[in-house]
C-alpha cells in the first residue's frame, strides 16, 4: 500500500484509497466494537498510571490527588541521592537479579538437555509434570511452607540434629538469605523454565540426527553439534527477556516480599519492597516513592533496548 502511494501521486487514486479505507472501517465495525473494551482497559489500567508517573515530579497531597498535587521539580530525585535506604535497595535488587541471571539462567538449559536425552517419552512427561508443579503455587503458600520448614524447630533442623549438625535458620541469617532466595526460586521455577527449551529441542528436524548417526556421530557429538545449535535462537531470546526483566521479575518481588523480615532487610530489601514499605508503612510521600519506581522503570527500559541490540548484532531476530 505504502509503496504504491509513493509511486503514484495521483490525487484521484489517493481519494479512492481513502474511500476504500473508510469502507474497510465500516465493514469492520463489529471488530472495533470487540476491541473497544480492550483498548479502554489499557487506557485506564496501564496508560492512566503511566500518566500518574508525573507524581514523581510532585509532592503528593491526599486532598488534591495525583493530578492536582503541587509540582516539585526534580526535588525527589535529589532526595534519593542522599537516601541510604534507596541505595541499599538498588544494590540488593541488582545483586538478586544479577545473581539469578548468572547462576540460574543456564540450569534450565542443562535440565532440558538431560530430559531431552531420556529415551522414554512417558518418563519424560512424568518428570516434567512433577518438576513443573510448584510453579502453579503462589509464593504466599510456598513461603509459608519454607518458613515452617526452616524454622528453628522445623523439619530441616530436625534432620540436621539427627546428624549432630548445627541448626541453621537461613531466613533470618544475613549471609544465607540471598543463596536461600536463589535456591528456593530454582526449586519453584526450574521445571517451568525448562519447558520452552524442551519445546525448542522438539522443533529440531529429526533428519539432522539421522544424518549424523549415519556419519557415525555418538550421542554427545549429536548433543553438541545438533541439539545445542538448534536451540541457540531460543536461548538468545530468553536471555534478552531475562536481561530486560532484571529490574522487574528478576528481583522476584513476590518471593522476597513473603520471605523477608526485619533481621535481613540489609541484604533483602529490594526497590519494590522498599517502595511498598516506604509508601504504606513508613508514611513517606507518595511522590517520592513514585520517583523511585519511575527511576526503576527507566533503567529497565534501557536494559531492554541494550539487550535487544546485542542480540540483533549477534544475528538473531530481536524482540522488535
Amino acid at each position: 500500500m505504502k509503496r504504491i502511494e509513493k509511486v503514484v501521486l495521483n490525487p484521484e487514486l489517493k481519494k479512492r484509497n481513502r474511500q476504500l479505507m473508510w469502507r474497510q472501517i465500516r465493514n469492520d465495525k463489529l471488530l472495533y466494537l470487540m476491541l473497544f473494551p480492550v483498548i479502554l482497559w489499557y487506557l485506564i489500567f496501564c496508560y492512566l498510571p503511566m500518566g500518574g508517573l508525573s507524581l514523581a515530579f510532585k509532592t503528593f497531597r491526599y486532598d488534591t490527588g495525583i493530578w492536582f498535587s503541587p509540582w516539585n521539580g526534580i526535588g525527589h530525585f535529589k532526595e534519593m541521592f542522599s537516601d541510604d535506604l534507596f541505595w541499599r535497595a538498588l544494590k540488593n535488587t541488582l545483586v538478586f537479579a544479577g545473581g539469578k541471571l548468572l547462576f540460574l539462567f543456564p540450569i534450565p538449559i542443562i535440565l532440558a538437555t538431560i530430559l531431552n536425552e531420556l529415551r522414554s517419552n512417558k518418563l519424560r512427561r512424568i518428570y516434567q509434570t512433577i518438576l513443573t508443579f510448584p510453579h502453579f503455587i503462589t509464593w504466599v503458600v510456598l513461603s509459608g511452607i519454607l518458613i515452617s520448614f526452616f524454622s528453628s524447630n522445623g523439619v530441616v533442623n530436625g534432620i540436621l540434629s539427627i546428624f549432630n549438625m548445627p541448626a541453621i535458620t537461613p531466613l533470618s541469617t544475613v549471609q544465607y538469605f540471598r543463596p536461600f532466595i536463589w535456591l528456593s526460586f530454582l526449586w519453584k521455577e526450574l521445571g517451568w523454565d525448562t519447558i520452552i527449551y524442551l519445546a525448542a529441542f522438539a522443533g529440531i528436524d529429526p533428519g539432522l540426527y539421522e544424518a549424523a548417526s549415519i556419519d557415525g556421530a555418538n550421542r554427545f557429538q549429536k548433543m553438541i553439534h545438533i541439539s545445542w545449535p538448534g536451540i541457540r535462537g531460543t536461548v538468545c531470546i530468553m536471555l534478552i527477556l531475562a536481561a530486560g526483566s532484571l529490574m522487574t521479575s528478576g528481583a522476584s518481588f513476590d518471593q522476597v516480599f513473603n520471605l523477608y523480615s526485619q533481621p535481613v532487610y540489609e541484604v533483602a530489601d529490594t526497590i519494590d519492597t522498599y517502595v511498598y514499605r516506604a509508601s504504606f508503612g513508613m508514611g513517606m510521600n507518595l511522590g517520592y516513592t513514585t520517583a523511585i519506581s519511575f527511576l526503576k522503570s527507566v533503567i529497565n527500559i534501557i536494559l531492554i533496548v541494550i539487550a535487544n541490540k546485542i542480540v540483533t548484532k549477534m544475528g538473531e531476530p530481536g524482540l522488535y
Partner: peptide
C-alpha cells in the same frame, strides 16, 4: 513500561 505501584494504586 508501566506506571509502577503507586500511580496504579491511586488510580
Amino acid at each position: 513500561f508501566s506506571g509502577g505501584m503507586i500511580p496504579f494504586y491511586l488510580i
